[in-house]
């Protein structure tokens, strides 16, 4: 091959990769433009703060926003201690040859690859029926816990986002130089003191990023909550952890497929999707800001 041909091939390859990158931007742009154009008509203050009316085109989506926020909040409270704890064990305590650690790592990788509807089925079977049933039997109540509700949906989402949290937290722990741990130990600190006073504070921004990543992932998932607690139409806000709730993602699904007049529901659908996108974008923005701050801190050292 001549030198000229090789250069031509190189340029061709460069253009192909640039095209791939442009397609991604284009796809996002189309989604955004489409959603915003359709939604701009219904998007008003009332749309966001009102409860839904009798039909899909009437009223607002406030219960869905509230449900989504409540769900991700409870999920975060469940997943963070679990995920950070597991990451701490894997990265700080387990020896490289530990079988438990090896199994846990394999489990994390496999969990990350499981389709989200499977999580939903698992949540229904394990949390709602098994755990909920046992709880009802133990407290002598009938069908309080053994039915889909906020807590079980949050638990299911927590299992779904666990790999994200574990991997991101491990990454944050890895970013803390091992010399810093040694310095702490050499000053007479115990392992736990080293973790609590040196490693965790240093890894905190990274762990926070892990939390935000988990939240933004969890907020957008519909399939797992489908079977574990979401309701299609529920003007009342969830009153307890066992209540059912509305969800932006599911609401969008309902508007798109379950309404008698799909065309009439279009503006409401677009508004709902826009709300969901904005929520997700906001969470991603927080993650980006946190990560930038973490990186600045590391550059200073």
């Amino acid at each position: 091959m001549t030198l000229g041909a090789r250069f031509a091939l190189g340029r061709l390859f460069e253009r192909l990769t640039a095209l791939a990158a442009a397609l991604i931007v284009l796809a996002l742009g189309v989604v955004l433009v489409d959603v915003l154009r359709d939604g701009v008509g219904v998007v008003s203050w009332r749309f966001f703060v009102d409860e839904p009316g009798a039909g899909p085109t009437e009223g607002g989506i406030f219960p869905a926003i509230f449900g989504t926020v409540a769900l991700t909040l409870v999920m975060t409270i469940i997943v963070m201690p679990l995920g950070v704890g597991a990451a701490l064990y894997l990265h700080e305590y387990a020896s490289p040859t530990s079988r438990l650690a090896g199994l846990a790592r394999a489990a994390v990788h496999h969990l990350a690859g499981v389709p989200s509807i499977v999580y939903g089925l698992f949540g229904l079977g394990f949390f709602v029926h098994a755990l909920g049933g046992a709880l009802d039997a133990a407290t002598g109540q009938a069908l309080k816990w053994a039915q889909p509700g906020l807590l079980w949906a949050a638990c299911t989402l927590a299992v779904l986002t666990l790999p994200t949290v574990i991997v991101a937290t491990e990454e944050a722990l890895r970013a803390v130089p091992s010399e810093v741990r040694l310095a702490s130990l050499a000053l007479g600190a115990t392992r736990a003191q080293t973790l609590g006073r040196v490693v965790l504070p240093a890894a905190a921004p990274g762990i926070l990023t892990a939390a935000v990543l988990a939240v933004s992932r969890g907020a957008g998932e519909v399939a797992p909550v489908l079977l574990t607690g979401v309701a299609s139409w529920l003007p009342d806000l969830p009153g307890s952890l066992s209540s059912q709730f509305m969800h932006l993602g599911f609401h969008a699904y309902v508007l798109a497929t379950q309404s008698p007049d799909v065309d009439a529901a279009r503006p409401a659908l677009a508004g709902t999707v826009a709300a969901l996108l904005v929520l997700t974008f906001l969470l991603n923005l927080v993650a980006i800001v946190l990560r930038a701050r973490l990186r600045r801190g590391m550059e200073a050292s």
Binding site: P177, E179, A183, S184, L187, P201, S301
Partner: peptide
């Protein structure tokens, strides 16, 4: 506490 240590790479805490 009685035998302190200084390392190769400076490793101050954050």
């Amino acid at each position: 506490r009685r035998v302190g240590m200084v390392f190769q790479r400076s490793n101050p805490f954050a």
